[in-house]
């Protein structure tokens, strides 16, 4: 008789842990966006942290929701963002390079330069 109560409380606690882990990664992504030195390094921080952060927060909400159709919708959102976020980052990085955003001074090797010049000419 007590068992279902304990299980649901445990699930809630796990859900809260997931929520705050997700927010922690969001925060880290924002701090990365603030601190990094150029577009490409900023993309590194935001793409990875956003992708995992949204997955963790939405999994937390899925645990709260349980086995319903809404959970499947949330799962669809997770998969969609998991596929599209790296694609968008890839497109942004290429667009920024062709637009003429220079990599920062610390960049030691740049093998994309010739290719970009060839594409622009």
């Amino acid at each position: 008789m007590m068992l279902p109560d304990i299980v649901s409380v445990m699930l809630d606690i796990i859900a809260v842990i997931f929520l705050f882990a997700g927010v922690f990664f969001f925060m880290a992504g924002s701090i990365g966006l603030y601190r990094m030195v150029d577009v490409y390094t900023r993309l590194h921080a935001t793409t990875k942290c956003d992708t995992l952060g949204q997955a963790l927060v939405l999994i937390g909400i899925m645990l709260y929701e349980g086995w319903t159709l809404v959970s499947i919708k949330l799962f669809l959102i997770i998969v969609f963002v998991l596929v599209t976020n790296p694609t968008a980052a890839h497109a942004m990085a290429k667009g920024a390079y062709l637009y003429g955003v220079k990599p920062c001074d610390q960049t030691s090797i740049d093998m994309y330069k010739e290719k970009a010049e060839e594409m622009l000419s």
Binding site: V39, L58, Y99
Partner: peptide, 21 residues
């Protein structure tokens, strides 16, 4: 640069998505 702004707007978009849920 304008690319920084677009990256940041994209990030805020992801936050707004989670906030909507």
């Amino acid at each position: 640069t304008i690319a920084d702004r677009i990256v940041a707007v994209n990030v805020i978009g992801t936050y707004a998505l989670v906030a909507l849920v």
